[in-house]
Amino acid sequence: MSKKVVLLDYGSGNIRSGERALQRVGADVTVTADYDQALNADGLLVPGVGAFEACMTGLKAVRGDAVVDRRLTGGRPVLGICVGMQILFAKGIEHGVETAGCEQWPGTVERLRPQSEEPVPHMGWNTVDVPAGSQLFEGIEKERFYFVHSYGVREWQLTDARASVAPKVTWTSYGGDRFVAAVENGPLAATQFHPEKSGDAGAELLANWVRSL
């Protein structure tokens, strides 16, 4: 039986490309902002494109922050993508404006600081440094993934002592600037890159997630 996945439609994100990518890997996908459907699905995918503050405003308007928190309290899987990953952290700072996030993880989303002449946004394909034992990247540890962003989490602040399950953090670098590319932390997982735009490697990552539901 196909796993039921809700792709949360809160006004921000690559909804249709995300929907097609999940369908490609065999998920039964519903695109909705409905609280009960989002709460009760096998998996919840939270997309996100644009500014941190705008995404948080849209998320709260559909009670998305509450449904994420309630799902995680019950051990039910959630996957965030791009800004949908960033808003899981404590706060974001853009153009001097600080916005509170969902606070599922401590940490700050801030502008990238490449040390060489690379432009911001970081746009294009990049390799990632995957920790041992990753389920999300199983079989695709050496692949490249597609990034489009100007902001990221440059310091991981959750210690093992504060985590119920030791998190697995995947990193990457752009112009010498190191930032979090993905996190696996119990039922909560997220990627800074776009798996739905990352070809076969991205499809396999989504398949790994769907199989885990």
Rank of each mutant, 00 (worst) to 15 (best):
R144L: 01
V68H: 00
A190K: 09
G43F: 09
V78E: 04
A54N: 14
N126R: 13
N40K: 11
Q135K: 14
D65S: 10
G84E: 02
A166C: 01
W156E: 06
V180G: 11
E141V: 13
A189C: 14
I140G: 02
M123V: 14
V6W: 08
A41L: 02
G48E: 06
S12K: 09
F89G: 04
L158R: 12
V31M: 15
E143K: 15
A54F: 04
R178N: 04
T159H: 14
I15T: 13
C102D: 00
A54P: 00
A66M: 06
V210E: 13
Q135S: 09
L79D: 06
G202C: 12
T170F: 13
A201K: 00
Y174K: 09
V68G: 00
F145Q: 01
Q157N: 07
S164E: 15
A66G: 00
V29K: 06
C102W: 01
V29D: 09
P106E: 07
R70Y: 01
L188E: 04
A207Y: 12
P121W: 13
G13W: 10
Q86W: 09
G124W: 09
D160R: 15
L45F: 08
C102Y: 01
V62L: 05
W105S: 00
V130W: 10
D36K: 13
A66E: 15
L45D: 00
V68Q: 01
T172A: 08
I81A: 14
E155I: 08
Q115G: 11
E117V: 11
G101K: 03
R63F: 02
D129K: 10
D28S: 15
L136D: 02
H194L: 07
C102P: 01
E196P: 04
P131L: 09
G199T: 11
P114S: 04
T32F: 12
A203E: 15
N14L: 04
L44I: 07
G139F: 05
M1A: 15
P119G: 07
A61P: 05
Y146W: 07
P131V: 09
E196L: 06
A132T: 09
R20C: 06
D9M: 11
V128L: 05
V97S: 07
V120I: 14
V97K: 15
A201V: 00
I87R: 01
N14F: 08
Q104C: 11
W105K: 02
E138D: 15
T127A: 15
A90Q: 12
Y174H: 08
V120W: 07
H149K: 10
A54C: 03
V148Y: 05
Q23I: 02
E94F: 07
I15N: 08
P167I: 13
R211A: 15
M1E: 08
S17V: 08
A163C: 06
S164W: 02
P195K: 03
Q37S: 14
R113E: 06
R111V: 12
Q115M: 05
P47K: 10
I93K: 14
N126A: 14
G74V: 01
T57N: 10
G96K: 11
W171E: 07
